[in-house]
Design a protein around this nucleic acid. Structure first.
Lengths: 194, 194, 194, 194
DNA sequence: GATGAATGAGGTTTCATTCAT
DNA sequence: GATGAATGAAACCTCATTCAT
């Protein structure tokens, strides 16, 4: 009776696309700055649409959260791909680290919320996540081979460090000097021990 | 906002004191492992008391959160005080860093929840916080004077780093090796740059 | 309340007529098997049209319900008219009873839903209803005069019995033997008492 | 942590019991006369309590529906048990039939709503249902052995007939004469055919 | 003091209906 | 005429907090 094809793959109507985009923008902004406890109705109002519209686009609050995450991850993945073109392994790796730290602002909150909601976060996030992780793994290994990064460091702790440093940077948003000093500590810490 | 103790200085009856202690224990455990969204009723039940009792001791959920925080900060402050007795400035500072990271002071969630609720987080937390910060400031300065820590580092970013590293460590709870490597990155990063 | 046909007497365009017919078919099927709580959108989808089209033909969900009822009643009225041609009063009456029971005129759900919606159910249903009732009244009187049906029986209770027996038959859809035995009880019960 | 015993088996506090009873009364009345689509809030208001109270007693609308059903079935079961003491099998059986028809008012609506909600209706209703069905089966067999009821009649169709006749009687609530005539048709129909 | 029943504002989600495309 | 996106009232349910027992 209902063909999935019919409902999903048709390109969105102009106004629908506009609304969807506005909702995503607003949700990203709101979730990032005020946490995930913000009522859906408020997000809808801020986007200038009714709740019904929100729920047509994202059938669940979780779905909205997930979509926000996917959007952010995709943007980051794109920029990581650019940076990975750099020739010098050390430069490429540390630029990437800086990028990830600076763009991971607020991400921890999301993953936690998704996890708490019992979502299998991997379903929709896997694609962009793996793109990022794949690149980063390669960059790490190259930089380690080049002697620019301490050999005793694997991906899990690197990820954890990046997410954590992102949180720290977030706290220091008001003081760019402090932010740079945090980044310096992290990057210097990643180099091989003396 | 303030717990019962403060309002009427009558000493708590034995059973009341026991209930208050159990509530704090349970709340610490529950908030830490499952976040602050857990219903008050569940906390009361886990502590073996009725909700009414919980609200007699802590007139607000926020008050309970605050009390939990205060408890944790006080415990940490005590241990920091012990560590500060160490003679070698470098040892003292880095031991303290490790301690603070491992006890994940702050646990982001709490401070955020308190802030979101509009509580002036400093009212009740100021005491123990300042105790910790005072010691840490002194340790930092000593270690910097001794050349063990990079000079370009102030308290705000140190705090941010510690909180962040705490988060990273939390994520890696399952893998002690990774946790140690994170700590190594942070502590090496804190040393003077080459 | 009234469907499009009534408002503008322009004859329906070919595709419009086809859509209207499909909607009625689907709605009859869906309401009958799954109750009246099924969302309009689902009916539209099953009919292969958009919701907008559904509401153009039937300005209200109630209007659709009503149209479904009218359709069923008209079909039954036609068959009752055929049966009434039978010569033997007893045969005619009992055949008619069987027909009405088996076609479950009314299906309780519908009338209730219509009534609950505050529709004056008689406005549009009156025509076909009266056609059926008129015939049935005549058949009942003839059969009573012929001594085939108990004299102490008026239309209201006959109707009620038929609707009720329809419900019983519906419940026993899976077991044709049981269905026949229910019909036997009713028809034997309608004969004059010993 | 939580012992089921602790929560459920304690006798209800006086006010709680009063509220629970009022809620059940109101719900029975409302569901019976106006169907199951009535909002829970309205039931709560009619019972003079807040929604929260309703949901404390019945954690789901379905649970309330089920409780209403159980209550009605238990009442009927008790009366059936009384009637079954009668010596004459025919009298006992037909009295029971009359009772069931008259008390089954509105029951069909409930079972349908429960079924639609996907509840395994048997879980909570099984007890009282089986009590009624067990007695009725025995009465039917006795009456058949005594030659007072047609032999070709099994429980499934008897049940269906009773429920259906209940519906008919409900429709005729305004006219007691008609109601009695319906009952006469049913009971005469149940006797052995001539 | 302790208990847990009661409260009701507020959160998420559904769905009949309207209207821009 | 047809479409389906948008709308928002209203449904169900949760939970911090109060208060009778």
């Amino acid at each position: 009776m209902t063909d999935r094809q019919d409902r999903q793959d048709r390109p969105l109507r102009a106004d629908a696309a506009r609304n969807r985009a506005r909702l995503l923008d607003v949700a990203t902004e709101v979730f990032t700055t005020r946490g995930t406890a913000v009522p859906t109705e408020e997000i809808a109002r801020a986007a200038g649409v009714g709740v019904g519209t929100l729920f047509r686009h994202f059938p669940t609050k979780e779905a909205l959260l997930e979509a926000v995450m996917v959007g952010r991850l995709e943007a980051v993945a794109a920029r990581v791909a650019e940076l990975a073109d750099e020739d010098d392994p050390a430069t490429a790796f540390f630029d990437c680290v800086r990028l990830l730290v600076e763009s991971s602002v607020g991400k921890g909150e999301f993953t936690r919320a998704l996890a708490a909601a019992g979502v299998d976060a991997h379903t929709a996030l896997r694609g962009p996540s793996e793109a990022i992780l794949g690149r980063l793994t390669a960059l790490l290994e190259d930089a380690q081979r080049a002697g620019a990064v301490r050999p005793a460091l694997a991906m899990p702790e690197l990820i954890a460090l990046l997410v954590a440093a992102g949180g720290a940077v977030e706290q220091l948003a008001a003081d760019p000097g402090a932010r740079d000093r945090v980044l310096a500590v992290i990057t210097d810490g990643l180099r091989p021990p003396r």
